[in-house]
């Protein structure tokens, strides 16, 4: 039982990080109907910038984090301006390929700058785990849990009440109508990418603190895709629940099935569940169903 509980709790905290990264996918999809395959690389940018500041220039961690958030912010805007703006109203395949190309380009450039070996953060979060009853949880995971929950609340309120959030929802619904209501779609897109890049950057910094930073960190972008799809690409609560669900699923399948099947079940289990769920609910668990009319 303790083993089971330990797995569930580990799954939940890992899932919280997934949820945060998935939030980036959902934000971009919600306002511009684009799924960003370069999300993993945005993660890397945040993590690398923060690492360089902390480990090479010995900047205090919080300041370094703030600076890397700014870097991510401007990178997000730059990407939107230089690449994605050309793809407004283009077919899905072009958009997918553009972000895939973007991810390849960014990975290449990052590799040139930071090479491929793993960079480890100096110890920032105390390494002693927190003991809750019979279960031990690493502190970094707990912080990520809190940060992602905080972000969930912030973004839900943002989309519900702030002018910008409402404008984003309007843009997602109908770009032309939004334009005629005086919303600048360009500004909205730039803001979305900026926010998504920042969310990814924070996720990258947290993950970098857990496992160190190397290019394989960007694979989490792919791991998190099922999360975003599972919850429905346009649903923020969906992303959070999907993240927690996939986290627990991974942890349980890793714990119970890996010894039977010889490892790697963790990575593939979310995708199997994803296909099954998509067969039943093609728009994810909480996604908005699109009704096509001829």
């Amino acid at each position: 039982m303790t083993f089971f509980l330990q797995l569930v709790v580990t799954g939940l905290v890992v899932g919280a990080v997934y949820a945060m990264v998935a939030l980036g996918f959902v934000l971009i999809y919600k306002s511009s109907d684009v799924i960003n395959f370069a999300q993993g690389e945005l993660l890397l940018v945040g993590a690398y910038t923060c690492w360089t500041l902390v480990a090479v220039y010995h900047v205090p961690f919080l300041l370094a984090m703030a600076v890397s958030i700014c870097v991510s912010l401007f990178l997000g805007i730059a990407i939107e301006r230089m690449v994605l703006r050309s793809f407004i109203n283009e077919p899905v395949i072009s958009v997918i390929m553009a972000t895939l190309g973007l991810s390849s380009a960014m990975r290449g450039i990052l590799q040139v700058i930071w090479s491929t070996d793993t960079k480890t953060f100096p110890e920032i979060f105390p390494s002693a785990p927190v003991i809750i009853g019979p279960i031990a949880v690493s502190r970094v995971y707990l912080y990520s849990l809190f940060i992602s929950l905080a972000m969930l609340v912030i973004f839900s309120l943002f989309f519900k009440y702030s002018n910008m959030g409402i404008a984003m929802r309007a843009t997602a619904d109908d770009q032309q109508a939004a334009l005629s209501m005086g919303i600048s779609v360009k500004v909205i897109f730039a803001a979305t990418w900026a926010i998504a890049a920042v969310v990814a950057g924070i996720g990258g910094i947290l993950l970098g603190n857990i496992n160190g930073v190397n290019p394989s960190l960007s694979h989490i972008g792919l791991t998190v895709l099922p999360v975003a799809i599972l919850g429905g690409l346009d649903s923020i609560p969906g992303a959070i629940l999907g993240g927690l669900f996939i986290g627990v699923l991974e942890s349980l399948s890793g714990g119970y099935l890996d010894p039977l099947l010889g490892g790697g079940v963790k990575e593939v289990a979310p995708f199997v569940v994803l296909v099954l769920i998509l067969m039943i609910r093609p728009y994810g668990l909480f996604g908005q169903e699109i009704i096509e009319r001829v």
Binding site: V83, G101, L102, A105, G108, Q111, V112
Partner: peptide
């Protein structure tokens, strides 16, 4: 290292 970057940029430029 840039090989990958060029690959990605080529795709984007074509698109």
């Amino acid at each position: 290292g840039l090989k990958e970057a060029v690959f990605g940029i080529t795709i984007i430029v074509f698109l």
